[in-house]
Structures are given as structure tokens and as C-alpha cells.
Design a binder for these strands. Structure first.
Lengths: 152, 152
DNA sequence: CTCATATTCCCCACATTGCACCACATTTTA
DNA sequence: TAAAATGTGGTGCAATGTGGGGAATATGAG
């Protein structure tokens, strides 16, 4: 049975800007034979998204084939999407090194929060995420609306 | 014939925060080949819901794929749903370890109550559940209204 | 181009804690 | 009443998270 990235884990940066990947997540990566990951700033939110290499490849490999047939504007869009991405390889302790510019992108001040997103996961500034999170009651209500057909 | 989670069982935490899964429930999990379970705070009530891994997967498996096409608000909603969930693996004695933050979420003070919910089950603070429970007469009445078509 | 300074990436070491394991009490079943 | 299954408690070790030294590499100033 394949596990997915769920849950949220607090994390901190050491003085060198390194952040550990939680053991639970590391196991999933190992199972997918993705030691390497791809990171890019999220398009919608103030966070960094990390894809297992496999997932990333699946997502963009067809796009590469089709790229020539696209119109210039769309090509530019895709170029920008790819340009912001980078490979990361965890060190022997399972940590990844975050650049200053990456941390600036998510307004990271102190503590971080690693948030599972099923087939990938995100890195948030802890406070930013908590501010964004809606209250329990409102959450339930919106979810009820969204999932009016299916119940969770 | 697949058994479902029914009934209610009292449970306590030891000093380490471990709670046993009742033998009846363990048997159901074993039958579903789910040793691992997924736990998350219930959206509607002050309790923790535990899904056999299979049941959880069935609910959310396509969501990861489709997520990209959703609008940002719904994405955020789903992220929050997933972020609050976590895998739990019972130890060899069939116990699961509950974190302090989980217990806070349900206002657990002393005794707990494990309550079956058909394909999943919930952990309540015993007193909270008993307070929430309505009297026998009122219960019958509401049930009659609700199930006016189907008979139990 | 050269040197100084910062960044990246190897290591090794160690504190902490989750978890496997063992032991036994208690309850249920035969 | 014996035997099996279930629930309870505690110990110890390996896995995980954390820190830092120092070599290799990049960056930037003069």
C-alpha cells in the first residue's frame, strides 16, 4: 500500500540554512526511488512545493514534447514555470539546503511548517500558514459546501 | 461478510499517551489488511476519527491528481484537510500513540470513549460524548423523523 | 587576474525519543 | 479450572533530529 504525504510537521533551520525532511516523508521518497526532489515556489500560495522526482517528471514530461506546438505566450509561461524549479539532493542526514532567496519567497522568519499534499509536500513559514488556516467551524462549513455530494 | 465498527468501548491512556485499539476493531483492521490507520480531527465534532488506510485512500486517492485543476480556495481547503491527518501504526500490542496536540483537540481530560462509525471509528473524551448524547426519548423521536422512509 | 570572503557539501559526533521488545496482570473462552 | 486472549507497564536500543568542523567550490572586490 502506497503512503502519501499527509500531516504537518514543525521544522527549523539551523545556522547553515539546512532543513531536515521528516522521516515519514523520507520513507515515502525512498519507496518511490526518488532520492532527488524538485522544488519550486508555489504558484498560488506563499510556500515552496517539493515534488518527488518521479511526480515532477510525470507532470512535465508530456509538456516538453508538446512545447514546440504551443504559441509563444504559452511557451513563455511554461519556461517561467520551469525556470523557477530546481533539483535538490538531501545530504546523508536527510537534510536539504534552502537558499536565502527561497526563504525570502515564503517570508520565512523563524519556524517552518512542512505540510503534506498527497503526492507532494510544501514548506511554509509556520506563522504564515497558521494565519491562512481558517477556523474549525468555518472549515467544516466550507468543506460541507465543497463536498456536498461526497462526505468526508 | 465484512464487519463494521460498531459499539462503544471505554479506554484510557497510559503515562506515555498510548491507547489500545479494542480487539474487536483490530480484527476488522486485520481483515481489511490495514495495519496502518489514518487519524484526523473530525470536521464536525470534537473528536478524532480513525480510518483504515484503505478507506482513507478510497476517499482521497484521485484528489492529488486533480488538485492542480482546482481553484485556489478549494486547494487550500483540501490542503488543510490533509494537513490535519496523520498515519498511525499500532505497536505489537495493538496500541497507538496519541500526541498531546491530538488530545488537546478533543479536550481530553481523563477517560476516553472509542465509538464505532461503520467504516471508521472515533475517539472522544468520554464526558464530552456523554454530554453530547441526547436522551432516549428524544433520540427515538429524531431518528423517526430522519429515517421516515427507511426503517431500522 | 589574485586574493579574500562567502557558500556549498562532504564528513563525524551526540542527544533525544519513538518504538520494538519483554514481562506480567487481568479478563474471556473452552 | 485451565488455557488463551487481551490489556498494562516498563526498559533499552536504534533511528531520528541537531550541531559543527573543515575541504571544495563559487562569488566578488580591488
Amino acid at each position: 500500500m502506497v503512503a502519501t504525504f499527509i500531516g504537518n510537521i514543525e521544522a527549523r533551520l539551523d545556522e547553515k540554512g539546512r532543513m531536515f525532511i521528516p522521516a515519514v516523508y523520507r520513507k515515502i521518497l525512498a519507496a518511490e526511488q526518488s532520492t532527488r526532489v524538485v522544488m519550486r515556489r508555489d504558484t498560488e500560495n506563499e510556500c515552496l512545493v517539493i515534488y518527488p522526482e518521479q511526480v515532477w517528471n510525470k507532470r512535465v514530461e508530456q509538456l516538453g514534447e508538446e512545447l514546440d506546438e504551443w504559441n509563444p505566450d504559452d511557451q513563455m509561461l511554461m519556461m517561467q514555470f520551469v525556470a523557477d524549479a530546481e533539483y535538490l539532493e538531501p545530504d546523508s542526514q536527510g537534510r536539504i539546503l534552502l537558499q536565502k532567496r527561497n526563504l525570502q519567497q515564503i517570508g520565512a522568519t523563524g519556524d517552518l511548517l512542512i505540510v503534506g499534499m498527497m503526492n507532494r509536500f510544501a514548506i511554509w513559514d509556520k506563522q504564515t500558514f497558521l494565519n491562512k488556516k481558517i477556523g474549525q467551524r468555518e472549515f467544516a462549513e466550507q468543506l460541507r459546501k465543497r463536498m456536498s455530494k461526497k462526505s468526508f
